[in-house]
Amino acid sequence: MASTKEVLSLAVETGDALLRNGAEVYRVEDTVMHILESYEIEEYDVYVLSNGIFASANENKEDACSMIRHVPLGSTHLGRVTALNQLSREICSRECSLEEAWKRLEACKQIPTTGTAAAAFFCGVGCNCFCYLFGGALPDSAVAFFCGLALKILLQYLSAGKVSKFMTNIVGSALVTLISLGVHLLAPAILYDKIIIGSIMPLVPGIALTTSIRDFFNGDYLSGAIHMIDAVLTAFCIAVGVGTIMTIYRYLIGGIL
């Protein structure tokens, strides 16, 4: 039988990876508990927050062990969440030895994110489609495509430089507004508002809102509140970014907006 410490670090490490890639608190807690159980640890306690994991096992035995992890709010990677979920299923059906589980866990963490070029392209396509859905005409959607493209490139650049989330959202929405107002200036027939609405979609806090609700629903109020604050602040930052550029534009061009 493996020592408590080995099992607990596997379980917590899996939970850490899940949380980091955007799984909801309930799933993380559940996964950690199931892994502990399937390696025959009967006494344990697990407490997960949206940015931390606290776990202890076998407190009354010789090899008692407890662990704490700090997990900053990160970007969502659904591929990793799916792979980790699959891994924990296999561990639970006892198909997976401890060594093998570690190897699989490392492999799951290494699943690559979408490449910059592909991400930029699909961000463009997404913005393009959303612009059309929210009432833009074809030329507007075409502009939205380039807005999305530029926005994603900017976001990648900012995330490499570890710029704070506030600034990222403000600068991102400001860029989109700038481009669409610029195009509007050259071609007045362009519906700049539809372009902006379509192009801010990658910034809009859909994930934070969804995760927050699910946390609340499962009774994890603290985590739900953290995500809800995240969602509200993100929305606020988008409004500030759009608003700033609009105000400047209005001052420069003089009320014909």
């Binding site: 955007g22 969502t76 990677h77 659904l78 591929g79 990793r80 799916t82 699943i111 690559p112 994110t113 979408t114 592909a118 991400a119 699909f122 961000c123 396509v125 997404g126 489609c129 994603k152 979609m201 990658p202 994930i207």
Partner: peptide, 8 residues
């Protein structure tokens, strides 16, 4: 497209 962005 958005699912691809989140690496589904």
């Amino acid at each position: 497209s958005f699912a691809i962005l989140f690496a589904a």
